[in-house]
Simulated assay, not measured.
Amino acid sequence: MPQSLFSKMTVPLTALLAAGALMGIATSASAEDWRGWNVHPDGYPNSLALKSFADEVSDKTEGRVNPRVYNNAVLGDQPDAFDQARSGALDFGNFNMGPMGPIVPETDVLSLPFLFNSVDQMYRVMDGDIGQRFADALAEKNLIALSWFGSGARSFYDTDHPIEEPDDVKGLKLRVMNNDLYVQMVDALGGNATPMSYGEVFQSLKTGVIDGAENNFPSFESSNHYEVAKYFSETDHLIIPECLCVAKTSWNALSDEDKSIVRTAAENAAKEQRKLWAERVEKSREIVEKAGVKVNQVKDKSAFQARMEPIYQAFVKEHPDLESLIDDIRNTQ
């Protein structure tokens, strides 16, 4: 039998077994099993792609590595899972780059509004040399980024009117994720940014506590926010990638042959996820339009981008070492 991967980990096996028992997770799995974190539900594009990854790795390694994906964030929220993967208590995960800033400062660059012009541009950037710079930063924090998933383009939606130009945001109370950059973005457009948990958004829209929010089509549709907010404006202001990352301890325990298998499986999973995501976006868009949502595409984003310049200037002043990274990305537009 191959040497136990757990013997390579920095976290004692007894601690892992205790943690598994506390979370109600079976602890009788073989030592070759890999535990993987995923926030998305069953059937979501990311979940389907991760299952393909797990199946391919298990098949091609002939059982030397058996990844198991735990969907719906049953192993904890992303910050906890991120720390567990860095310590080796989790073997891999599908992590959004947005909340990683406190641990990996370079990733805050990806939360700058209107950094990318399109999802395709983001893919080209992350699949190339610039993406490798983010991978190197993650590696310094004990995570090996094997491939990049998409999470769509985030846009504004509201209950009042279409957003065609920056001044259309003026006075709107808009829910944003809890990130200072997103608050600054809405403030720069004249709106009132309101950080709140995602689970509170539907009722807050319904009761008028907020006028709108921002997200991608699949989230807008699956959360039923479209039942209340009848205006969706395609500003595409945030296009944030996700990584399929493996814990460095688990990665280092692999033979060169198995590393190649795992990396190839991760790249194949990314191709599948991107295809499935694009299909899901179109399906969700069709659903909300049939329900009466008025969708408008903001074709000229230059006026919005101009409003973001003070945010970029303040960011560079605080992080001068990241200016070249920002410039290199913007030069690919």
Rank of each mutant, 00 (worst) to 15 (best):
Q84L: 13
Q84K: 13
A85N: 14
R86T: 12
R86Y: 08
R86D: 07
S87D: 13
S87K: 13
A89Y: 04
A89M: 11
A89G: 13
A89N: 08
A89V: 06
L90A: 07
D91H: 15
D91L: 05
D91V: 13
F92S: 01
G93C: 06
N94L: 08
N94V: 09
F95Q: 10
N96R: 10
N96I: 05
M97L: 12
G98S: 15
P99A: 15
P99H: 07
P99Y: 08
M100Q: 04
M100V: 13
P102Y: 05
P102R: 07
V104H: 12
V104C: 08
V104N: 09
P105S: 06
P105W: 03
P105L: 10
T107C: 03
T107V: 12
D108F: 01
D108T: 15
D108I: 10
V109F: 03
V109C: 04
V109L: 05
L110S: 00
L112P: 02
L112T: 01
P113V: 11
F114Y: 11
L115K: 05
L115E: 05
L115P: 08
F116P: 00
F116H: 11
F116C: 06
S118V: 07
S118E: 10
V119Y: 00
V119W: 00
Q121Y: 04
M122P: 12
M122W: 00
M122E: 02
R124F: 04
V125G: 10
V125D: 10
V125Q: 06
V125S: 05
V125I: 15
D127L: 03
D127E: 14
D127F: 02
D127R: 09
D127S: 10
D129F: 04
I130N: 04
Q132A: 15
Q132N: 12
Q132C: 06
F134N: 00
F134Q: 06
F134P: 02
A135E: 06
A135Q: 05
A135M: 12
D136P: 08
A137L: 15
A137V: 14
A137G: 14
A137W: 05
L138N: 03
L138F: 11
A139N: 08
N142M: 03
N142S: 14
